[in-house]
Design a binder for these strands. Structure first.
Length: 241
DNA sequence: CCGAAGACCTGCTGGC
DNA sequence: TGCCAGCAGGTCTTCG
């Protein structure tokens, strides 16, 4: 899915398109994101929340297909289509979002270096890649962007947190911001199913340096693909130490 | 407490 | 061409 840049792209687009419309009589007052969850707020204080998991799509005025799981009809005749080929995604109506918002660690784009360092010292034995993907540790980073962030920081995905130098921690921190922001600018990464709220593919996949890449763009070394905690990890064994 | 593995689903790809 | 294993961007739960 849909990691932070993809959900944020959808959020920005939907915010433009649906704020002010009514759904079942309730007026939409905002579209927010927390971690990889999209939140649509109504004027009565209730919210609709969505998790797209691996293959979910939220498309404004999209055409229903065999993968369409739900169609939301607005008062003006426009629609929001929820598609999900693998059915892992979900949506639900909630009275308040505080509880679910508290389930996650700090937002990846909001955390500062000092807090990032403090959090890392609490997890000395963790491997850096799975830790970056742990939503309770830091919210928004998934498999693609953890690979890309670690390549940019020149840190191997299996490194234990306690072995990271100050310099490496700073590089990881800076590249979390840099890469997530760049991916948002390019409307996210479309590897297979991801489409934005306009039904368009994201453009960031062509900038991937290691995810689904054969050779390192810096040194030409064959990109290694390994399993870490059941997920694929891609890295350059020469550039990343 | 931690990490690994399996479960949840469907669709696509590559190899035989 | 047909079948089948293997693989997918994410969480959860279970187990050792």
């Amino acid at each position: 899915m849909p990691e932070l840049p993809e959900v944020e792209t959808i959020r920005r687009q939907l915010s433009q398109k649906i704020v002010g419309k009514r759904l079942n009589g309730q007026k939409i007052v905002g579209v927010r994101r927390r971690a990889k969850i999209l939140i649509i707020d109504f004027n009565d204080g209730t919210s609709l929340i969505f998790h797209l998991k691996l293959t979910g799509q939220l498309i404004f005025n999209g055409k229903p297909s065999q993968h369409t799981r739900k169609v939301f009809n607005f008062d003006d005749g426009s629609q929001l289509i929820f598609n999900d080929a693998r059915k892992f995604g979900w949506w639900k109506k909630v009275k308040e979002t505080k509880k679910i918002e508290k389930e996650f660690g700090p937002e990846a784009l909001e955390i500062d270096l000092k807090i990032f360092k403090t959090l890392l010292t609490k997890r000395p034995k963790a491997k850096i890649k799975p830790l970056l993907m742990d939503q309770k540790f830091i919210a928004g980073i998934g498999n693609i962007y953890s690979d890309e962030i670690l390549f940019a920081a020149k840190v191997a995905p299996l490194r234990l947190v306690k072995t990271l130098t100050d310099r490496e921690i700073k590089e990881i921190f800076q590249n979390i911001k840099k890469i997530l922001k760049a991916a948002i600018r390019h409307q996210g990464s479309s590897v297979e199913y991801y489409l934005d709220a306009c039904g368009e593919k994201g453009n960031y996949a062509k900038y991937h340096k290691v995810y689904h890449r054969e050779k390192c763009s810096l040194c030409g070394t064959k990109i290694k693909k390994i399993k870490i905690g059941g997920r694929s990890a891609h890295y350059c064994p020469n550039c990343q130490r």
